[in-house]
Design a protein around this nucleic acid. Structure first.
Lengths: 99, 99
DNA sequence: AATATATATCGACTTTTTCCGATATACCTA
DNA sequence: TAGGTATATCGGAAAAAGTCGATATATATT
C-alpha cells in the first residue's frame, strides 16, 4: 500500500466525486445497457457526469487505479471501473494506527 | 472536516514523516529543555530533523494545522506542535464509510 | 533600549498537477 | 476490411505546490 500515492489520488475534487458516484452506481448513473452495475461503470458515463473531457477522466481513472482505489474490467469496447473496497478498509486502518 | 484539504496536506513525503515523528517524540527527538513533550515539539527540532529550511518547515506545519492534523502552543519564543488525534480518528471513520 | 533567538511571512524560482485537444489503439459490426 | 464507437495516450498551456533566501515579528536577556 503506497500511502503517498493514495493521498495524492484523493487530493482532487473530481476524483473524490467519482469515488462517491461509484459507491452507489444505480443512484448516480442511468441504467446501463451492456451490463448491470456488477462490473462497474463505464468511462463514458463517468465522463458525462463529470463535465470534464474524455481524456481527463480517463487519466483520472488511471490515477485512481494506480493507487489501488478502483479496478477495471474490459467488456467489449467498454472499460468498467468499480471501487476496490479492500483498499479503503486498509487505508482506514492505516490512518487509525500507522500514520 | 475538510476532506480535500486533509488529503492535500497528507500528499507530501516530508509532512507524512513529520506526523510520524510526532507520534512518538521521545523516540524521534532529543529531549527538550523547555518542556517535556506534553505540549509537542518545537519547530526548530522538526526543522533540523527534516533537513529542509526553516521557512519550508514552518509553512508545512501551517498546512498540517489548517487541515486540523496538528495543533500548536506558543510557549515563550517557541511554538510547539503536536498531533490532533481526534482528526485522525475522524478521518479513519470517514474513509471507512463516507468516501 | 539593544541584541539574540525562534518562528512566521514574503517574493521568486522550479517542479508537479490540472486539464485540454489531437491522435492512437482496441474492439465491434456491416 | 472499412467505418464507427469507446478508451488510452501524447504534448502542451495554465495553475498549484514545493522550496528557498531574505526579511519581519515576537519574545527573552542583558
Amino acid at each position: 500500500m503506497k500511502q503517498l500515492e493514495i493521498f495524492k489520488a484523493l487530493s482532487n475534487k473530481t476524483r473524490l466525486e467519482i469515488l462517491q458516484w461509484l459507491k452507489d452506481p444505480p443512484a448516480s448513473f442511468p441504467e446501463q445497457i451492456h451490463a448491470g452495475f456488477e462490473v462497474g461503470v463505464c468511462v463514458g458515463e463517468i465522463q458525462k457526469k463529470s463535465g470534464l473531457t474524455q481524456s481527463t477522466v480517463s487519466e483520472y481513472l488511471s490515477i485512481l487505479q494506480r493507487a489501488g482505489l478502483v479496478s477495471s474490467t474490459r467488456v467489449g469496447q467498454w472499460t468498467y471501473y468499480k471501487r476496490n473496497e479492500e483498499t479503503f478498509i486498509e487505508l482506514s486502518k492505516i490512518i487509525e494506527s500507522d500514520i
